[in-house]
Design a protein around this nucleic acid. Sequence first.
DNA 1: TCCATATTTCAATGAATATTGAATAGATGG
DNA 2: CCATCTATTCAATATTCATTGAAATATGGA
Lengths: 114, 114
Amino acid sequence: MESTHAIKALAALAQEHRLAVFRLLVAQGPTGLPAGEIAKTIGISASGMSFHLAQLEHAGLVRSWRRQRRIYYAVEIENVRRLLAFLTQDCCQGRPDICGDIGALAQVCGPEEA
Amino acid sequence: MESTHAIKALAALAQEHRLAVFRLLVAQGPTGLPAGEIAKTIGISASGMSFHLAQLEHAGLVRSWRRQRRIYYAVEIENVRRLLAFLTQDCCQGRPDICGDIGALAQVCGPEEA
DNA sequence: TCCATATTTCAATGAATATTGAATAGATGG
DNA sequence: CCATCTATTCAATATTCATTGAAATATGGA
């Protein structure tokens, strides 16, 4: 993962409403939720939600698909795993004994990978 | 962990130089590095580095201590673990079978905890 | 004390971001 | 085709943030 991509993802998460959306979608899992329902749950306007969902999607943290009139959003768990792995890469000079096995982080919600 | 605290930490990481510092300090581990050396490695001014280190420290991602003339910075691995756990809390409605055990994330660099 | 080292603080500038409401676009059913 | 539902786009505004260089603070040695 490139640094610029990680920054985009972190910036997407570093905002009150988007973080709330992200956590809602993490809890929801792959079935996802329609934009309108997310907006209602979070408590912001439709246009505001559209803006924030676009940020999250552009950062690769969520994906979307249309189903009839509604557009559903769900977390992209594999990219989340990549982000977390990036953050903790080479922990403690590659010696997990110093601070615990940070490599375990890379196994979040999916098979491990470089 | 509160949402506002998580946002502060994520915002601290969502910046080119601070993310580079964070990853450098993650790799370095508990011995830490002095501010000047970090600035030299990253390639920015001393005052700029001071600004960024203050942001990281205020977010709880790093800690600092003085040793003679130098001020050392090291990652606060336990708070990093808390942040990652916060991001992946209640993954997939608490059913790890859906997307893998995201709870494993909470065991980064330290004993597990609520 | 005087000087050099190491880092922080401060103020000013320029750039990036969130919010709002109105307008637009796409999908569905009558 | 029309009305409606759902969601996005756009422009304007206000806020927040990063960078710069100069000045200030703290430490340690001569």
